[in-house]
């Protein structure tokens, strides 16, 4: 009789595991590797390699339209991240620091709506709503984009903040109250400092999400309000150049930096606190 060992079921022992893993990795990263590679192409085509050069990076930056779109994107992403993170902190406090109620699940769904409703639907809805407002007020500024981005960034900021609040020992807040802190002081001096890593993580996720958005931006923006992604989309439709590769490469660099920071911050969170 064979001895039944306590070996757990392991996916990595299945036949073909290595093949599938490699295929998936190639599918995920080959396009990005090619895109980054051709950003350093000396020639004008993003498909025919003509030698190494860095000249597309300064050329992209010299383009007035790129510069404007970049600044606009950064303004929108920063504003949206600030607004959505502030709202997310309040929402997370509201959903974790009170007695569980039957409506709780519904509230979660309401807050996370942007994750579930197809983006194109939200985009069309915003287009119509903002259309009314534009006619009524005549305002054409960046406010619409900032407002729209703030709204769909909320769940991205909310999720890490709520996770941290749920993991936080409520006794600490009780102890603060016991030591004469008013509810506001307890929040300001105990809850918020301990929440900061999650707030920063939520901010960065919101920032990236906003920076990356195409669909809603495309529907909501007024003429001459191109963000970096909508500008790139326009470029590709006209005439594909290596300039787009260069911008994409920079965006990837920025994303990697922010995601690394996010990872480091959330790792801090998961460290035992005793």
């Amino acid at each position: 009789m064979t001895i039944v060992s306590d070996r757990a079921f392991s996916v990595s022992r299945l036949p073909g595991f290595a093949t599938i893993a490699v295929t998936v990795l190639v599918m995920l990263y080959l396009p990005i590797v090619l895109l980054v590679l051709f950003a350093f192409n000396a020639g004008p085509s993003p498909a025919i390699w003509e030698g190494f050069s860095l000249h597309w990076f300064p050329r992209a930056w010299a383009n007035e339209q790129v510069k404007e779109a970049t600044i606009r994107s950064l303004v929108i992403a920063t504003s949206a991240a600030i607004i959505s993170t502030s709202v997310a902190v309040l929402a997370a406090l509201g959903t974790t620091r009170r007695r569980k109620s039957p409506g709780q699940t519904f509230v979660y769904l309401m807050i996370n709506q942007p994750l579930m409703v197809p983006e194109i639907v939200t985009a069309v809805a915003l287009l119509i709503l903002f259309g009314f407002i534009k006619v009524a007020t005549g305002y054409q500024g960046l406010g619409y984009l900032i407002l729209a981005h703030s709204a769909f960034c909320i769940p991205f900021a909310y999720l890490p903040i709520r996770a941290r609040l749920e993991g936080m020992d409520i006794t600490l807040e009780i102890a603060a109250a016991d030591l004469y802190a008013t509810p506001w002081q307890a929040f300001r001096h105990v809850t918020l400092p301990m929440l900061m890593p999650a707030v920063a993580a939520g901010f960065m996720l919101a920032f990236i999400t906003s920076l990356d958005d195409v669909i809603i931006s495309l529907f909501v923006k007024s003429a001459g309000q191109d963000t970096l992604p909508t500008y790139m989309l326009g470029q590709i439709r006209r005439n594909m150049t290596v300039e787009v590769n260069a911008i994409s490469t920079l965006l990837i660099g920025l994303t990697v930096i922010l995601l690394t920071a996010f990872f480091l911050l959330t790792r801090e969170r998961n460290r035992p606190q005793k």
């Binding site: 600490l172 009780i174 102890a175 109250a177 509810p183």
Partner: peptide
């Protein structure tokens, strides 16, 4: 409320 009571607590988990 607890923040207005001149009473302090040593918690089981220290907190």
């Amino acid at each position: 409320p607890p923040n207005l009571r001149p009473v302090n607590t040593v918690f089981q988990s220290y907190a």
